[in-house]
Amino acid sequence: MNIFAENLFGEVPKVSSGNLVVEGELDTRHGPILYLEDVSVSFDGFKALNHMSLYIDAGELRCMIGPNGAGKTTLMDVITGKTRPDTGTVFFGQTIDLLQIDEPAIAQAGICRKFQKPSVFDALTVFENLELALKADKRTWQTLFYRLNGEQRDRIDQIIETIGLTACNHQRAGILSHGQKQWLEIGMLLMQEPKVMLVDEPIAGMTHQEIERTAELLLSLQGQRSIVVVEHDMEFVRSIASKVTVLHEGSVLTEGTMDEVQNDPRVIQVYLGG
């Protein structure tokens, strides 16, 4: 495996691409930015993902819904390298095989994730949290001698303003409210300048206004980045989604606009029980 070939200072290996074009460079000329084909994952006999195939287009904002245990979080785990599937292929663009590289390499290639439970670094300040996330050379030696330049400082300040945490700039992240932590994590995602953002339950613990602002933010990013949102709140999903994928028992049940899927008899059966 490629991950054994990295150098001592934490350099992320160039991704080999089999017999396809440029090594390790994202190629989305042929449509989708994320390809999952026939992916299966099982935990002790339980099929978390069952021959799932899914395509996400460049610049698309996609919502995933589905009852508990439908495989939404497992799907994100597979894309980000946390879980390796038993079978199937997962490609980022045409050239990057995500099953050949590990979590840091996937993150550096441009796939970033917000976790279901807000995962910020409590001991660090808001500013420092964003600084760690900032797209940069993340090898050990380079990190040791890293200095922010003015432009990067401005960028962090700008993101802090976007996520509405200017007042808490130098406070420890540990004392933020649940909603603020969610926003901070979204900010950390933005700092990484990802090509694909995987956003797991972004609005849990947020007030109405915060939810509205989150929807605005996600909509404003549409087109520049591909965004996959997993959310239970149907009203929120309706407010942002042009295309919704319904997952059930580890596979895609149906895809379409919110109206289409809500009127789909199979979806109704899954949600209301049959």
């Binding site: 760690l132 990190t143 950390m188 990484q192």
Partner: peptide, 13 residues
């Protein structure tokens, strides 16, 4: 694990 998803090679640090 969160640090890994930010793109840092945790084991090297």
């Amino acid at each position: 694990s969160r640090v890994r998803f930010l793109g840092y090679r945790v084991e090297m640090f």
